[in-house]
Amino acid sequence: MRLVVARCSVDYTGRLTAHLPLAPRLLILKADGSVLIHSDGGSYKPLNWMSPPCTLTTTRRSDDEIEGDPEGEWIEQWDVVHDKSGDRLRVRLHEVFEDSSHELGVDPGLVKDGVEAHLQALLAENIGTLGPGWTLVRREYATAIGPVDILARDPEGRAVAIEIKRRGEIDGVEQLTRYLELLNRDPLLAPVRGMFAAQAIKPQAKVLAGDRGIDCVTLDYDALRGIDDVESRLF
């Protein structure tokens, strides 16, 4: 992993266009090819990014080239192009404060809460719980910012990203929103809709999910395990 702290400007072009004016930022280049741009705020969400597969090309200028350029005194330019969509992320570095690389090795992965992990496995095994015609694509569908719990397809064949929590709170909706932003950049999957599933979902999380077009589903742990027959209940 390479970490660069620099005064830079950023332009994203493709299916959307975005511009970040000149300012100090943290740039992260990961071993999987992803590039993320962070500010000193906004928690863990990057200001912009490019997910793999992509190709990075760097251009460094001499002092003479910098002095003769009316567009600005940038010293290095990164062009990151997505191999499938052709979207382009261009980063122009004007001043570099820190530049370091670190070998992190293979990550052991996130160890989830026992009930949460079991819910994920049970729902994957019983995807028909969501309704007739649902099919499982895979569990732990990898993205550049972490795995989506379940990727499935609804009866119409549309991709659905499912995030599973034991307790559904606003943070879980925010996490799923980030996954959806990334997945919908993939032309082979888009459009991808979201589903937030938990044993209990807080009202504030339901409101936020509804505002972002994300469905909410309450999971019955015992019913998924086959212990509780919901159809035979008196109440």
Rank of each mutant, 00 (worst) to 15 (best):
S39N: 12
P147E: 07
L89K: 05
D69Y: 03
R178P: 00
G157R: 03
G128N: 09
D83A: 15
T59K: 12
T218F: 00
N48L: 10
D11R: 15
A209G: 08
C8L: 15
R25P: 00
I162A: 05
G213V: 09
A121P: 00
D228E: 13
L104M: 12
P53R: 03
R158H: 13
R193E: 11
C54G: 12
S232I: 01
D11M: 04
T143R: 06
G105V: 08
D11V: 14
G146L: 06
G157W: 07
D64R: 13
E76S: 11
L47M: 12
G157T: 08
E73N: 14
E174T: 07
G194N: 04
R7G: 02
L89T: 09
P24D: 13
D211G: 02
W49M: 14
S9Y: 00
H38N: 12
E163L: 06
L151G: 04
A198I: 07
V137Q: 04
S100W: 08
H82T: 04
Q120M: 07
W78A: 08
D11K: 13
A6N: 04
K206S: 06
R233T: 06
P108N: 09
Q175G: 06
G146K: 04
V81G: 01
W78R: 05
D215G: 08
V81L: 11
I170K: 14
L29T: 05
A31K: 13
R92C: 11
V115S: 03
A197D: 08
T135Q: 13
A209N: 05
A117G: 15
E103A: 13
K165N: 09
V173T: 08
V81T: 15
G172A: 09
E174M: 10
D113N: 15
R178A: 15
C8H: 02
L29A: 12
G168R: 03
R139L: 09
R158S: 12
P46Q: 05
F235E: 08
P53W: 03
P147T: 02
L22M: 12
P53C: 05
E65I: 04
E125L: 11
L3F: 14
Q204P: 05
G41M: 01
E156G: 04
L89N: 04
S101I: 08
C54L: 09
Q77E: 15
C216A: 11
I164D: 02
L130Y: 06
L224E: 07
L151Q: 03
R15N: 11
D229Y: 01
T58H: 01
R185S: 09
C8S: 13
H38G: 01
V111K: 14
D215K: 10
Q175P: 01
G128H: 11
S43W: 08
N126L: 00
R185G: 13
G194I: 05
N48R: 06
D40K: 10
A161D: 04
L182H: 02
Y44G: 06
K165G: 05
A117N: 09
D149W: 03
P53E: 06
A223E: 13
A223Q: 08
V137D: 09
R225S: 11
L26E: 08
L16S: 14
W74S: 05
